[in-house]
Design a protein around this nucleic acid. Structure first.
Length: 250
DNA sequence: AACATGGTCAACCGCTAGTTA
DNA sequence: ATAACTAGCGGTTGACCATGT
Protein backbone atom coordinates (compact mmCIF):
# COMPACT_ATOMS: atom_id res chain seq x y z
CA UNK A 1 0.00 0.00 0.00
CA UNK A 2 1.64 3.12 -1.14
CA UNK A 3 1.84 6.06 1.07
CA UNK A 4 0.15 9.15 -0.17
CA UNK A 5 2.70 11.77 -1.03
CA UNK A 6 2.33 14.57 1.41
CA UNK A 7 0.84 17.66 -0.09
CA UNK A 8 3.45 19.86 -1.60
CA UNK A 9 4.62 22.17 1.09
CA UNK A 10 5.94 24.66 -1.41
CA UNK A 11 3.45 27.43 -1.91
CA UNK A 12 0.89 25.87 0.36
CA UNK A 13 -0.50 28.12 3.02
CA UNK A 14 -0.78 26.83 6.56
CA UNK A 15 -2.19 28.00 9.83
CA UNK A 16 -5.54 29.53 10.65
CA UNK A 17 -8.03 30.03 7.88
CA UNK A 18 -9.12 33.51 6.93
CA UNK A 19 -12.80 34.37 6.38
CA UNK A 20 -11.97 34.89 2.71
CA UNK A 21 -10.57 31.38 2.39
CA UNK A 22 -13.58 30.00 4.20
CA UNK A 23 -15.90 31.76 1.80
CA UNK A 24 -14.02 30.45 -1.22
CA UNK A 25 -14.20 26.91 0.12
CA UNK A 26 -17.86 27.20 1.01
CA UNK A 27 -18.76 28.64 -2.37
CA UNK A 28 -16.84 25.98 -4.21
CA UNK A 29 -18.34 23.08 -2.28
CA UNK A 30 -21.75 24.62 -2.60
CA UNK A 31 -21.37 24.68 -6.36
CA UNK A 32 -19.38 21.57 -7.09
CA UNK A 33 -19.36 19.42 -3.98
CA UNK A 34 -16.22 17.75 -2.70
CA UNK A 35 -15.77 14.59 -4.67
CA UNK A 36 -12.02 15.02 -4.81
CA UNK A 37 -10.39 16.81 -1.92
CA UNK A 38 -6.96 16.68 -3.46
CA UNK A 39 -8.03 18.51 -6.57
CA UNK A 40 -10.40 20.84 -4.79
CA UNK A 41 -7.99 23.56 -3.66
CA UNK A 42 -6.49 23.83 -7.11
CA UNK A 43 -9.88 24.16 -8.75
CA UNK A 44 -11.18 26.49 -6.07
CA UNK A 45 -8.12 28.67 -6.18
CA UNK A 46 -7.02 28.00 -2.64
CA UNK A 47 -3.40 27.77 -1.57
CA UNK A 48 -4.17 24.94 0.79
CA UNK A 49 -3.67 21.24 0.54
CA UNK A 50 -6.72 19.03 0.13
CA UNK A 51 -6.30 17.64 3.57
CA UNK A 52 -6.46 21.05 5.10
CA UNK A 53 -9.58 21.89 3.09
CA UNK A 54 -11.25 18.70 4.16
CA UNK A 55 -10.47 19.29 7.82
CA UNK A 56 -11.68 22.84 7.64
CA UNK A 57 -14.92 21.79 6.03
CA UNK A 58 -15.63 18.84 8.27
CA UNK A 59 -14.66 20.45 11.54
CA UNK A 60 -15.89 23.97 11.05
CA UNK A 61 -17.62 24.98 7.84
CA UNK A 62 -20.18 22.23 7.43
CA UNK A 63 -23.62 23.80 7.76
CA UNK A 64 -24.83 21.12 10.12
CA UNK A 65 -22.12 21.72 12.66
CA UNK A 66 -23.51 22.44 16.08
CA UNK A 67 -21.47 24.95 18.02
CA UNK A 68 -21.38 25.80 21.67
CA UNK A 69 -21.00 23.94 24.91
CA UNK A 70 -21.76 20.27 25.18
CA UNK A 71 -24.86 19.53 27.21
CA UNK A 72 -24.58 17.23 30.21
CA UNK A 73 -26.49 14.68 28.17
CA UNK A 74 -24.03 14.87 25.33
CA UNK A 75 -21.14 14.56 27.74
CA UNK A 76 -22.71 11.51 29.32
CA UNK A 77 -23.26 10.01 25.91
CA UNK A 78 -19.61 10.52 25.10
CA UNK A 79 -18.57 8.92 28.36
CA UNK A 80 -20.79 5.92 27.80
CA UNK A 81 -19.80 5.44 24.21
CA UNK A 82 -16.14 5.89 25.06
CA UNK A 83 -16.46 3.04 27.48
CA UNK A 84 -17.62 0.84 24.64
CA UNK A 85 -15.70 2.23 21.71
CA UNK A 86 -12.57 3.64 23.22
CA UNK A 87 -10.88 6.40 21.28
CA UNK A 88 -12.94 5.86 18.15
CA UNK A 89 -13.92 9.47 18.00
CA UNK A 90 -15.52 9.33 14.59
CA UNK A 91 -17.78 6.51 15.71
CA UNK A 92 -18.75 8.47 18.79
CA UNK A 93 -19.29 11.56 16.69
CA UNK A 94 -21.65 9.62 14.46
CA UNK A 95 -23.94 9.31 17.46
CA UNK A 96 -23.84 12.99 18.26
CA UNK A 97 -25.32 14.87 15.34
CA UNK A 98 -23.65 18.16 14.67
CA UNK A 99 -20.57 17.29 16.68
CA UNK A 100 -17.27 16.49 15.07
CA UNK A 101 -14.75 13.86 16.06
CA UNK A 102 -12.21 16.59 16.66
CA UNK A 103 -14.54 18.46 18.94
CA UNK A 104 -15.44 15.35 20.89
CA UNK A 105 -11.80 14.43 21.19
CA UNK A 106 -11.02 17.88 22.56
CA UNK A 107 -13.87 17.74 25.04
CA UNK A 108 -12.76 14.33 26.21
CA UNK A 109 -9.19 15.39 26.81
CA UNK A 110 -9.98 18.76 28.33
CA UNK A 111 -13.06 18.01 30.40
CA UNK A 112 -14.35 14.52 30.65
CA UNK A 113 -11.17 12.58 31.26
CA UNK A 114 -10.15 14.88 34.06
CA UNK A 115 -13.59 14.79 35.60
CA UNK A 116 -13.69 11.03 35.49
CA UNK A 117 -10.24 10.74 36.99
CA UNK A 118 -11.27 13.11 39.73
CA UNK A 119 -14.38 11.11 40.46
CA UNK A 120 -12.40 7.95 40.49
CA UNK A 121 -9.99 9.37 43.00
CA UNK A 122 -13.02 10.11 45.13
CA UNK A 123 -13.87 6.45 45.29
CA UNK A 124 -15.12 5.45 41.87
CA UNK A 125 -14.18 1.97 40.79
CA UNK A 126 -15.56 1.57 37.31
CA UNK A 127 -13.34 0.26 34.57
CA UNK A 128 -13.57 0.65 30.89
CA UNK A 129 -14.18 -2.27 28.65
CA UNK A 130 -10.49 -2.99 28.28
CA UNK A 131 -10.02 -3.17 31.98
CA UNK A 132 -8.07 0.02 32.21
CA UNK A 133 -9.28 2.48 34.75
CA UNK A 134 -9.11 5.81 33.06
CA UNK A 135 -12.82 6.02 32.48
CA UNK A 136 -15.77 5.68 34.76
CA UNK A 137 -19.31 6.82 35.10
CA UNK A 138 -20.10 9.86 37.11
CA UNK A 139 -21.18 8.81 40.53
CA UNK A 140 -24.36 10.78 40.75
CA UNK A 141 -25.51 11.40 37.24
CA UNK A 142 -27.90 9.06 35.50
CA UNK A 143 -26.36 6.73 32.99
CA UNK A 144 -27.76 7.16 29.54
CA UNK A 145 -27.00 5.82 26.15
CA UNK A 146 -28.70 7.62 23.33
CA UNK A 147 -29.08 7.46 19.69
CA UNK A 148 -29.36 11.14 19.58
CA UNK A 149 -30.63 12.43 16.30
CA UNK A 150 -34.10 13.91 16.43
CA UNK A 151 -34.93 12.04 13.26
CA UNK A 152 -34.13 8.78 14.94
CA UNK A 153 -36.37 9.64 17.82
CA UNK A 154 -39.18 10.59 15.56
CA UNK A 155 -38.85 7.32 13.72
CA UNK A 156 -39.40 5.49 16.98
CA UNK A 157 -36.34 3.37 16.35
CA UNK A 158 -34.57 4.77 19.31
CA UNK A 159 -32.73 2.39 21.50
CA UNK A 160 -32.53 3.93 24.88
CA UNK A 161 -31.56 2.90 28.31
CA UNK A 162 -31.89 5.16 31.23
CA UNK A 163 -30.92 4.02 34.63
CA UNK A 164 -29.64 5.24 37.89
CA UNK A 165 -26.08 4.38 38.56
CA UNK A 166 -26.85 3.93 42.20
CA UNK A 167 -29.02 1.03 41.29
CA UNK A 168 -26.67 -1.44 39.67
CA UNK A 169 -29.47 -3.81 38.78
CA UNK A 170 -30.76 -1.27 36.33
CA UNK A 171 -27.44 -0.24 34.92
CA UNK A 172 -26.56 -1.30 31.40
CA UNK A 173 -23.88 -3.92 31.29
CA UNK A 174 -21.05 -3.75 28.81
CA UNK A 175 -22.74 -6.57 26.95
CA UNK A 176 -25.92 -4.57 26.74
CA UNK A 177 -24.11 -1.55 25.49
CA UNK A 178 -22.20 -3.63 23.01
CA UNK A 179 -25.45 -5.04 21.76
CA UNK A 180 -26.71 -1.54 21.36
CA UNK A 181 -23.73 -0.69 19.24
CA UNK A 182 -24.55 -3.25 16.63
CA UNK A 183 -24.07 -3.28 12.90
CA UNK A 184 -26.71 -0.66 12.38
CA UNK A 185 -24.63 1.65 14.48
CA UNK A 186 -21.76 1.53 12.02
CA UNK A 187 -23.98 2.13 9.08
CA UNK A 188 -25.47 5.23 10.59
CA UNK A 189 -23.50 8.14 9.39
CA UNK A 190 -24.29 11.75 9.85
CA UNK A 191 -24.97 12.84 6.34
CA UNK A 192 -22.81 15.39 4.72
CA UNK A 193 -24.65 17.79 2.55
CA UNK A 194 -24.02 17.14 -1.06
CA UNK A 195 -27.71 17.25 -1.45
CA UNK A 196 -30.10 19.75 -2.79
CA UNK A 197 -30.69 20.94 0.73
CA UNK A 198 -27.53 22.91 0.53
CA UNK A 199 -29.22 26.15 -0.20
CA UNK A 200 -31.30 25.89 2.88
CA UNK A 201 -28.47 24.80 5.09
CA UNK A 202 -26.12 27.44 3.77
CA UNK A 203 -28.17 30.16 5.35
CA UNK A 204 -26.12 30.14 8.50
CA UNK A 205 -22.76 30.50 6.84
CA UNK A 206 -22.70 34.23 6.83
CA UNK A 207 -22.97 34.37 10.57
CA UNK A 208 -20.46 31.60 10.89
CA UNK A 209 -17.88 33.51 8.92
CA UNK A 210 -18.47 36.56 10.99
CA UNK A 211 -17.96 34.43 14.05
CA UNK A 212 -14.77 33.03 12.67
CA UNK A 213 -13.35 36.47 12.11
CA UNK A 214 -13.67 37.07 15.81
CA UNK A 215 -12.81 33.88 17.59
CA UNK A 216 -14.91 32.86 20.58
CA UNK A 217 -17.29 35.68 19.98
CA UNK A 218 -20.37 33.49 20.06
CA UNK A 219 -22.51 33.41 23.13
CA UNK A 220 -21.92 30.08 24.77
CA UNK A 221 -24.56 30.47 27.40
CA UNK A 222 -27.19 31.15 24.79
CA UNK A 223 -26.26 28.09 22.86
CA UNK A 224 -26.22 26.06 26.01
CA UNK A 225 -29.71 27.18 26.84
CA UNK A 226 -30.84 26.26 23.36
CA UNK A 227 -29.43 22.79 23.83
CA UNK A 228 -31.16 22.37 27.12
CA UNK A 229 -34.38 23.44 25.52
CA UNK A 230 -33.84 20.95 22.76
CA UNK A 231 -33.42 18.09 25.20
CA UNK A 232 -36.30 19.27 27.31
CA UNK A 233 -38.56 19.39 24.30
CA UNK A 234 -37.30 16.04 23.20
CA UNK A 235 -37.98 14.39 26.49
CA UNK A 236 -41.34 15.94 27.01
CA UNK A 237 -42.44 15.02 23.51
CA UNK A 238 -41.43 11.42 24.04
CA UNK A 239 -43.42 10.68 27.12
CA UNK A 240 -45.17 7.95 25.27
CA UNK A 241 -42.00 5.95 25.44
CA UNK A 242 -42.30 3.95 28.57
CA UNK A 243 -38.66 4.08 29.44
CA UNK A 244 -38.80 7.81 29.69
CA UNK A 245 -41.04 7.69 32.73
CA UNK A 246 -38.00 7.22 34.94
CA UNK A 247 -35.98 10.12 33.67
CA UNK A 248 -34.75 12.24 36.52
CA UNK A 249 -35.11 15.97 36.23
CA UNK A 250 -32.07 17.97 35.30
C1' DA B 1 0.07 46.36 35.52
C1' DA B 2 2.92 42.65 34.31
C1' DC B 3 3.96 38.15 34.21
C1' DA B 4 3.10 33.06 34.76
C1' DT B 5 0.26 29.30 34.31
C1' DG B 6 -3.37 26.51 32.65
C1' DG B 7 -7.33 25.61 29.57
C1' DT B 8 -9.28 25.45 25.08
C1' DC B 9 -9.59 24.33 20.42
C1' DA B 10 -8.29 24.75 15.45
C1' DA B 11 -5.05 22.80 12.65
C1' DC B 12 -1.38 19.74 11.41
C1' DC B 13 1.04 15.19 11.10
C1' DG B 14 1.57 10.48 10.30
C1' DC B 15 -0.64 6.47 9.69
C1' DT B 16 -4.09 2.93 7.89
C1' DA B 17 -7.98 1.39 5.16
C1' DG B 18 -10.23 1.41 1.02
C1' DT B 19 -10.37 2.02 -3.98
C1' DT B 20 -8.78 1.93 -8.59
C1' DA B 21 -5.89 0.88 -12.54
C1' DA C 1 -1.78 -9.64 -7.09
C1' DT C 2 0.28 -5.41 -6.77
C1' DA C 3 1.25 -0.59 -6.73
C1' DA C 4 -0.46 4.00 -6.69
C1' DC C 5 -3.45 6.92 -4.87
C1' DT C 6 -7.15 9.24 -1.83
C1' DA C 7 -10.04 9.68 2.23
C1' DG C 8 -10.40 9.41 6.81
C1' DC C 9 -8.83 8.64 11.52
C1' DG C 10 -6.52 9.50 15.95
C1' DG C 11 -2.62 11.74 18.23
C1' DT C 12 -0.29 15.87 18.89
C1' DT C 13 0.93 20.69 18.64
C1' DG C 14 0.76 25.51 19.17
C1' DA C 15 -1.67 29.89 19.29
C1' DC C 16 -4.90 32.29 21.76
C1' DC C 17 -7.40 33.44 25.82
C1' DA C 18 -8.67 33.54 30.79
C1' DT C 19 -7.36 33.37 35.30
C1' DG C 20 -4.25 33.60 39.17
C1' DT C 21 -0.29 35.65 41.54
Amino acid sequence: MGRAPCCEKMGMKRGPWTPEEDQILINYIHLYGHSNWRALPKHAGLLRCGKSCRLRWINYLRPDIKRGNFTPQEEQTIINLHEVLGNRWSAIAAKLPGRTDNEIKNVWHTHLKKRLNKNQNNGGDAKDINGSNDTTHEDKEPVMVYTTSPQQFSNSTTTLDISDNNNKDDTMSHEDISALVDESFWSEVVSVDNSSNNEKKIEGWEGLLERNSKRHSYNNSKLYNDDMEFWFDLFTSCRRIEAFSDIPEF
